[in-house]
Design a protein around this nucleic acid. Structure first.
Lengths: 178, 178
DNA sequence: TGGATCATGTAAACAGTTACATGATTAC
DNA sequence: GTAATCATGTAACTGTTTACATGATCCA
């Protein structure tokens, strides 16, 4: 029942539980809200990881019955879990793992008519700009430092990407004119 | 023998073969050299994908015997493969999939002594700067447009990240002084 | 002399997503 | 009234890495 489980989100979970006790549902929301630039999660990984951490003694559970819903399971980190987390935090981080289908298509899209290429660039620009505006909206919520760090990080990358997109697009226009 | 194969690299392979016939080995090298900002590959995925594309009729193979080595298998894209590629290129790209363990550790590392936090930031800065310098060295090799696009992209992101890292580090110094 | 490169491939382990199942409550 | 949110969980599928197997040639 607890074998063959992916444990890559183990430390993510422990780290968030150190701030405050949470349910699996809470953890997922939190990751989506403030850590989507770092990682993503789905219940399919999250719940099994929580079960596993429990059997390992890294977390304990408190069940709260609810009407019309599955009982809420509030997870809390244990001293063992804290040691495990600290150990991990001290190791140098792994290299980023990145899959950018957009960039791949751009690279291959020279085989496509120019208008398809431009469409690709324009759509990416629109999406990036939209993300930037969403960030600006939520900027006021940036209460504590780490949240602000990540928001600034994403903002900086998005801005750099928009500048680059404009450059590439301008370059394409040049070629047409020549 | 050909079931249950991951095919996510199908179009990557077809796209590269459109430029020129290549072996699996060549494809891997090319991806590492110019497309590492977009995706990564390993032989464990690449070879099975090539076999599968062959049975689908998207590529054909020419075997070239060699002394002391497995015969070189040069893959060529077929008209069917070209159609498949073009179809795919016209679809809007999927969202980026990103895993940045560094960013996650930074977020969680507020539970660590400040010197650990600074070490994390400094190491990231050093790595990013090193990557930037490597890019600068290979800049002259930027022959055709798409290669240059990707190099510029990575350069822009790295520069933005270094500026951000310096900012975060400066902010930490502020707090100590206050 | 020793390490990188060339060149293929498979099997097993690991990781992660998606679809499914259930069903009340809350907000518009 | 309908869509989103709350809240758990499993099974099947898809995807990816790592280790293994083989072994010559090229470069410092």
């Amino acid at each position: 029942m607890f074998f063959r489980l992916p444990m890559s989100h183990k430390h993510l979970v422990l780290g968030l539980l150190l701030d405050q006790p949470m349910t699996g549902y809470d953890i997922r929301k939190h990751v989506q809200a403030v850590l989507s630039a770092a990682t993503s999660t789905s219940y399919g990984t999250l719940y099994p990881v929580l079960h596993r951490l429990q059997t390992e003694g890294c977390v304990v559970v408190q069940e709260i019955p609810q009407k019309g819903r599955p009982p809420k399971k509030i997870y809390r980190i244990t001293p063992l879990g804290e040691r495990e987390l600290t150990q991990w935090l001290k190791q140098p981080p792994e290299a980023d793992k990145i899959r950018r289908e957009f960039l791949l298509k751009l690279y291959l899209a020279r085989h496509l008519p120019r208008h398809e290429l431009l469409k690709l660039l324009e759509q990416r620009r629109a999406e990036t700009l939209a993300a930037l505006n969403t960030l600006r909206t939520h900027a006021k919520n940036g209460k504590h430092e780490p949240d602000a760090w990540i928001m600034d990080y994403v903002t900086a990358l998005h801005k750099a990407e928009i500048a680059w997109l404009d450059n590439v697009t301008a370059g394409l226009a040049e070629i047409v004119r020549t």
